[in-house]
């Protein structure tokens, strides 16, 4: 499982490398473009996702301690927080659309090529991440519904699902400074 996760890390690596190249080439314009993102929504989402990760970790421990009911509760909490994350993300996308920051739409208008490119990267990066969040949510739901998994004191299924969920979290931890913090002023 961890080997697969290393592979996932590399998948996002390409996006980060692109962001790095862009930032190195257009230092100040990059910051200006990032400033248009909603830093507060991004921060809130970081907190939501970190908390969700905590819930997944607790679920693993509860299953190990032979408390299947608590494992299920923690997993559902993680699912709920994941949905909150997606909801905030959706609200943010809607806001971007209204402000004409979404590339490829009719009302899109940018202050310059760097901003255009930055928003492209932003949507590819967060979009790819959102896909992973959705997959992770599916896995969490499967684990929460699986009676056997809850009672498994080795927590094999829940453990692996949690590993995946943590990875999704780690990727976001790096997306946050790359996309949001770069624009704070």
């Amino acid at each position: 499982m961890l080997v697969f996760l290393a592979s996932e890390v590399m998948l996002f690596g390409g996006i980060f490398a692109a962001a790095l190249a862009l930032r190195l080439e257009h230092e100040s314009a990059y910051g200006a473009a990032a400033h248009h993102l909603n830093l507060w929504l991004g921060t809130a989402n970081t907190a939501v996702l970190l908390t969700s990760s905590l819930m997944a970790a607790i679920a693993v421990q509860a299953a190990r301690d032979g408390k299947p009911a608590w494992a299920a509760r923690a997993l559902w909490a993680a699912v709920l927080l994941g949905c909150v994350f997606l909801a905030i993300k959706g609200a943010e996308y809607a806001g971007d659309l209204r402000e004409g920051l979404m590339p490829g739409t009719a009302q899109a208008h940018f202050e310059g090529t760097t901003q255009h490119l930055f928003m492209n990267l932003y949507f590819i990066g967060t979009g790819l991440h959102a896909v992973h969040v959705t997959i992770g949510l599916g896995l969490l739901v499967v684990a929460a519904l699986n009676r056997q998994a809850r009672h498994d004191q080795h927590a094999v299924l829940i453990g692996n699902v949690a590993l995946y969920w943590h990875l999704v979290d780690v990727v976001w931890v790096f997306l946050y400074p790359t996309l949001y913090l770069a624009g704070a002023r």
């Binding site: 970190l50 990760s53 905590l54 997944a56 970790a57 693993v60 949690a162 590993l163 943590h166 990875l167 979290d169 780690v170 931890v173 790096f174 946050y176 400074p177």
Partner: peptide, 15 residues
Amino acid sequence: IATAKAALILWFFME
């Protein structure tokens, strides 16, 4: 700080 956070997640949450 992002690295520190990732390290905490890897070390404790991912066990």
